[in-house]
Design a protein around this nucleic acid. Sequence first.
DNA 1: TCACTTCCGTTGCAAATACAACAGACCTAT
DNA 2: ATAGGTCTGTTGTATTTGCAACGGAAGTGA
Lengths: 219, 219
Amino acid sequence: MKKFVALLKRTKLFSGVGENDILSMLHCLNATVRQYGKGEYAFRQGEYIRSLMILAAGRLHIQKEDYWGNLNILNEIRPGEMFGEAYIVPNSGPLMNDVIATEKSVVLFFDMERILTVCPSACPFHTQLVKNMFYTISDKNKSLVQKISYMSQRSTREKLLSYLSDEAKRQNNSSFSIPFNRQQLADFLSVDRSAMSNELCKLRDEGMLIFHKNEFTLY
Amino acid sequence: MKKFVALLKRTKLFSGVGENDILSMLHCLNATVRQYGKGEYAFRQGEYIRSLMILAAGRLHIQKEDYWGNLNILNEIRPGEMFGEAYIVPNSGPLMNDVIATEKSVVLFFDMERILTVCPSACPFHTQLVKNMFYTISDKNKSLVQKISYMSQRSTREKLLSYLSDEAKRQNNSSFSIPFNRQQLADFLSVDRSAMSNELCKLRDEGMLIFHKNEFTLY
DNA sequence: TCACTTCCGTTGCAAATACAACAGACCTAT
DNA sequence: ATAGGTCTGTTGTATTTGCAACGGAAGTGA
């Protein structure tokens, strides 16, 4: 466990907690580790989650496949980010999404019960932890709202432009890279890949942007 | 303020807190009240929020209007529900949405600084408050994910069916009412109203459901 | 090097959608 | 009662999308 402390120190969840305290909290929270191969499912829709997770290495996608097989990527998890926090609420029901490793990944598990059950003597940082968790889930909330604002655009073109311009704004640079390939971007925006590809090239031909692979520049 | 205690006691935020404690917390949190007329904006995109709000009476819509005037209803706030919690994070930037009263509404404001800054002597319930807030925002998170799962459907028909069947499941009854009129439902699902109305009638003619105003029954 | 896989752009066509416009039902205030 | 407003369903058309299919580019492993 010790080797994860440096990583955890830089996560939002453990922000402001000293390394020694993190180490003792790892025991307190009953932390465990699991590895996943590329393409392996960490969780599947319908499972019950009893842990809060932090991705230590690799990359995960939170995604949902509907009855007819349409895939929708809800979120991408990068190292240091937590997930599963929406299911920490008592009686929150089964998982509604799949969690898949898009690369070989390492995941840390924390006992949810122990996170919200304060143990004042052993862990004076529990309050800080809950606070941090609140900040994190609050941020995630905002990013979901952003995704909704992209998806609510009526045309593929508008979806693309709203996403790309937001991303440029977020990275504070008209040249930026996105964490998706074409199929993943299409799934993220809930549009058809080929239609999106087509629209992307039209935008390029109209001089609104250029791109090379995942690198985009807006004009 | 006293008259709001009974209401607050039943909210998720103050769940598990006694009436006397709520009253003292109202002072501690620097609570204030404001009224809004029907159609009045409580907040507009771009404003900075320094409070957490609870709707005491009426109805609010969290909505976003894009550059071209397309309206999207992100969420509906009913009495007892809180909002603004996503902007409690330090440096979370300006509000990205509009908040509009669809009925005459009464809103309670709580000082955000004081919510997360624990004052152990005066308010032993701060921890409980943060916990409750966490549960609430966690739930909201899940409802956003649900909305995304509706919007990610490719056709208007599928959007309708996924929303309506979820709503039937949620209300545990194949007959149920929805909190939207047609235009609002269309905005919520991000589709064209007339096309949706058309599709709704096709579904009815195919015997999959019946409806009268906002009352639906699925078959 | 060569076969194999993945990713991306392109095209054609059938189907669905957005949009505008209109009419009837319903509500409300005068 | 009536006039004005809102809400809803309906229709026609231009546009967009979804889908399937294909070929080339790029990357991978034997």
